[in-house]
């Protein structure tokens, strides 16, 4: 039985094709302006790659900010449910999930069966989101992909004390003016995100949680993961499929589409 999950995020769109609970194929691209067209091309890309027809797909679930612009989906499910389901699929030991998305970040606590027990999302502010990293990368003229590796080369992480993305940016600019090493600034940015996100996570009362997974594209950034681990005090799991977690969860939930999960 084939199912598809489509996750239209604010920055990237992801698609996952699964067969009997196993990931078969995936697609990632920029969301762009026309979300409906993006969703369609992901869908067709998945079918084409595996030589499948539309009729072989038994369920499609759309998630993410653009979830309502996927007309061919059977139903929509929010990112929270999909990240939880996806993380649980990738590692059933997971009891908490942190996802830093393009325009919001969330922390989810799972119950034993992988159901969502509770969740929090960041308040209305770019600090602690992927957008924050993007803005900082631009200010530092560094490719976002290199952010993680560079931050690991810091000798003395700079202190970024502002929570507001706009203020933090000017703080970064003045650090640059002072001649602070780029690596140190980046490490400081990651530390700021780490404490911000973990403070939000703390509101969930995750004290009993031992297995925490970071999902979403930002999980590829080792600097952020390390910064989170530092505050958390334990290793954080990151799957090679981190960016696809939402789409995988959606595809999992599509298995039982029609019936409530």
């Amino acid at each position: 039985m084939y199912t598809i999950g489509i996750d239209i995020g604010s920055v990237t769109a992801k698609g996952a094709l699964m067969s009997d609970g196993a990931l078969v194929s995936s697609q990632v691209c920029f969301t762009g302006y026309n979300t409906a067209a993006t969703a369609r091309s992901i869908y067709e890309g998945l079918l084409e790659k595996e030589g499948l027809k539309e009729t072989s797909i038994e369920g499609i679930v759309a998630t993410g900010y653009g979830r309502n612009s996927v007309p061919f989906a059977d139903r929509t499910v929010t990112e929270i449910m999909c990240h939880a389901a996806g993380a649980y699929h990738l590692n059933p030991a997971v009891r908490a999930v942190i996802d830093i998305g393009g325009q919001d970040s969330k922390a989810i606590v799972l119950s034993d069966g992988g159901r969502v027990a509770n969740f929090v999302m960041n308040d209305k502010c770019a600090a602690g989101t992927g957008r924050f990293l993007e803005v900082m990368a631009r200010a530092l003229e560094v490719d976002l992909d290199q952010f993680g590796t560079l931050s690991l080369q810091a000798d003395q992480p700079a202190k970024i004390s502002n929570l507001c993305a706009v203020f933090a940016e000017s703080e970064v600019v003045s650090l640059i003016a002072k001649g602070e090493k780029r690596e140190n600034i980046i490490a400081g940015i990651h530390a700021a995100i780490g404490s911000r996100v973990m403070a939000m996570t703390g509101r969930l009362g995750m004290w009993g949680v031992t297995t925490l997974m970071m999902t979403g594209g930002v999980a590829k950034n080792t600097g952020v993961v390390k910064a989170l681990e530092k505050v958390w005090g334990n290793p954080i799991h990151v799957s090679p499929h981190a960016q696809l977690t939402g789409a995988i969860g959606a595809a999992r939930l599509a298995r039982v589409a029609g019936s409530p999960e």
Partner: peptide, 23 residues
């Protein structure tokens, strides 16, 4: 006020309640 952010939060909250009730 951000309509899409609030919509997502409300939907996710209801989905969670549904799961909790079903659990």
């Amino acid at each position: 006020f951000s309509e899409s952010q609030v919509a997502t939060r409300i939907e996710a909250f209801i989905e969670m309640l549904r799961q909790r009730k079903g659990a």
